[in-house]
């Protein structure tokens, strides 16, 4: 079953991971959380985030769950992405974090 999944054409075989530091003043509060989930929803890939490289992982498409992470300024956000458009999704969410969600 695992092999079948891995060999599907166009599918990312293993989840992609990357991290970025939260630079905007308020951290991952309401407004940035909404921007992040709106961005994530634009992709079919499964996108998760965490405050540590080994999780616990939170669904980046759920605004309520993302807000509950309460990530403060200076925190490192880890992303784990899996799906056909995973690469683009990862680039998009990282760009959003780097840009301070347009708040900096």
């Amino acid at each position: 079953m695992h092999d079948a999944h891995a060999s599907r054409p166009g599918e990312t075989p293993v989840p992609l991971t990357a991290s970025a530091v939260l630079v905007n003043k308020v951290g991952l509060h309401a407004r940035p959380s909404i921007k992040l989930t709106q961005c994530a929803k634009g992709f079919t890939a499964k996108i998760e985030l965490a405050l540590a490289a080994d999780g616990p992982w939170t669904d980046a498409k759920s605004p309520v769950k993302v807000m509950r992470v309460k990530a403060p300024q200076g925190a490192t956000l880890h992303f784990r992405v899996a799906g056909p458009d995973g690469k683009a999704a990862l680039a998009a969410v990282l760009a959003l974090v780097h840009d301070g969600f347009g708040e900096v």
Partner: peptide, 18 residues
């Protein structure tokens, strides 16, 4: 927020009720 991503009504309701 859920609606703005094009989600159907059931998903919008579920998300708010989270």
């Amino acid at each position: 927020t859920e609606s703005s991503g094009g989600s159907p009504l059931a998903a919008v309701k579920r998300s708010a009720e989270e």
